[in-house]
Write a protein that binds this DNA or RNA. Structure first.
Lengths: 192, 192
DNA sequence: GTACCTCCGTACGGTGCCGTATGGTCGAGA
DNA sequence: TCTCGACCATACGGCACCGTACGGAGGTAC
């Protein structure tokens, strides 16, 4: 927790990452300058050098999230050539990531906040769009593919919610997760 | 907004309902004694007569939510005898309710808060249990019924998220919603 | 009408955070 | 070594909220 200080001086990105971590475990309200400064072993003097105010920090943190938490998974999954296998890989890794890092759920939780809403909209449309593209490659019509992509994404979102809420009834790993993903796949790829 | 004052004196329940409304549009952080007092046209003097502190108010509000926002829907739906029709009715009304009243999503958003977590766990298990019961009555085995209830519930949760986030891609009413529910039903009730 | 009980108004101290002001430190380069 | 600019520490004022103390208003009972 008390992060080591390899280089004494901090950069803008360090603050943004710390803010993202704060969102993950306390929500947007957790992004407070003075507590973050304590956590980083520095003071507000540093913060107000790099940022004009708290709002700018939140924006930077959300930018980071948008860039890293969607494209990273897509790139990582895109190397699998078979679309069905890729879909399975995507769902599995997404669910496992959502379990070990709750930042996704935390951002969603503040989805109605004016700073979060536009970012969240972009990310959601990117993700649903990517899913729909996979279903297209499985042979579904554009409308069908979009519907199924949407359904798969809502199932993912809801599952993430359950995990983050600490519900033991949601399978989060191992055989339970594999069976869950299999069922989700079988269900969403079945012909109408 | 400036609510009329039919009876000058307030009761504990008035505060709890106001707190629930505050959660709905500002999250847990929106439950602040002095702003609520202003909103109710009274002062802190009233509040600290009825409650020992802010925490007690949050608990009362969550109690209210637990009692009214789950059982009410179940009771209302339970009069439909046919299980498949009841499932359809349940999903449709739940999604429509989630759209006109965001309290459900707001509570979920604070699911990791120590005061919210236990309530949320109970509510989730009650809902998934009820759904599983419906799938049982449709002829599925206990394990199958639970899995399908879980899937239906995660889809509902995710869909709620999307609506609350203001995503236009999520069908929220009319033909789009009917088609969405039909697909969800067809999918979750299909034999394996 | 007076004693009492329920409920509320008001004033106060305390805390945690935001943002500003200003001086200090430290390394890079002339 | 001196200077300069990037970066940070510290102190301060202000605000919003929590919780307490206490003095009432208004109804009820007799």
């Amino acid at each position: 927790m008390a992060m080591a200080t390899p280089s004494r001086r901090l950069a803008r990105t360090d603050w943004a990452r710390a803010a993202l971590a704060a969102i993950a475990d306390s929500g947007l309200a957790g992004v407070a300058v003075e507590p973050l400064a304590r956590r980083l072993g520095t003071t507000k003097g540093s913060f107000y050098w790099h940022f004009t105010n708290r709002e700018a920090l939140i924006e930077a943190a959300l930018d980071l999230w948008e860039q890293e938490h969607t494209e990273a998974v897509i790139v990582r999954v895109d190397r699998e050539p078979d679309p069905l296998q890729r879909l399975r890989l995507l769902l599995t890794t997404a669910i496992m990531l959502a379990q070990e890092d709750v930042i996704d759920a935390a951002v969603l939780a503040s989805g109605n906040h004016p700073l979060v809403a536009p970012v969240l909209t972009r990310v959601t449309e990117r993700r649903v769009g990517y899913l729909a593209g996979l279903f297209r490659r499985l042979g579904f019509s554009p409308a069908q593919a979009r519907d199924r992509g949407l359904l798969a994404y809502t199932a993912y979102l809801g599952h993430t919610q359950l995990i983050q809420a600490g519900l033991s009834i949601a399978p989060a790993h191992g055989a339970g997760l594999r069976r869950y993903v299999d069922r989700l796949l079988g269900i969403t790829t079945a012909p109408e």
